[in-house]
Amino acid sequence: MLFYVARRLAQAVPLVFVIILINFFLIHAAPGDPVFVLLGSMDTTPEFVERVRREFGLDQPLWVQFATYLGKILSLDLGYSLRFQEPVLGLILDRLPATLLLMGTALTVSSVVGILLGAIAARRPYSVTDHASTIVALAGYSMPVFWLGQIMLIVFALHLAWFPTQGMYSLRAPSEGWGRVMDIARHMVLPVITYSVYHLALVYRLTRVKMQETLALDFITTARAKGVPEGRVVFVHALRNAVLPVVTVIGLNFGFMLAGSVLTETVFAWPGMGRLLFDAIGARDYPVLMGLFTVLSLMVIIANVITDVIYAMVDPRVIYR
């Protein structure tokens, strides 16, 4: 197993290289000059613009810049942010926990709740409950994140005033220890729901279909005939088989969720990587963009490996060499 994981990770190296190559040239193909953004909202002299450009090495030909960048990345140096004048790695690591917290929670909630609801719905297909939940799931599946986020804010934060509108902590009365945990949890409710809805709907729909198929199979009939309790039939016998493709989808969801973090974190002013990415695009902060894309693609690759490992644990038929 360890050998397999190591081999999968080694296979990812050329992939990461290609990702870096494509990202680098795509980002630099976008119009706009980071130096102009950097200098702020007032006028300046072209000499000053040129000087700053020289200092950042932005006057070099693109392929030279790329070679320099690759050289640095091999020594795990993601470079300096043009905008913040600080190491990119530090900026990303500062933001990583907030994103992982939000995303991890949303991924867990959407997966667990989605599978449970799917399993329950499959027991009585085409009933009123099933139709109702299918309609709700379809709606959730097709709702744009930024729109849903706004609606959640207006209803639950502004009108009902149950939750704060934005941020990760209450800034008026900062708290420590357990109070701080509860404070962050309160701030997480709306973004987690917004974040989860799409994936929950996806997992629910898939589980339901797979469960329906599985529940119609002979071994289920046998189990029921043997007098196995219905709960055990559904959640042990059937779910274990039905959940296999769902595991793959959850692994894929991880990548989509990273992409979705840009929208969710911007709407809820969540201080994570998605916001950093959004800001970096606006400022044409090339090193931060490159660093983020590299870290994000590494995370997706690692998530895929983890998915495969989990798959092996769930499905005894899979053998790794």
Partner: peptide, 8 residues
């Protein structure tokens, strides 16, 4: 950064 969230 988001104008709508800021106003809320």
């Amino acid at each position: 950064p988001d104008p709508a969230a800021r106003l809320l």
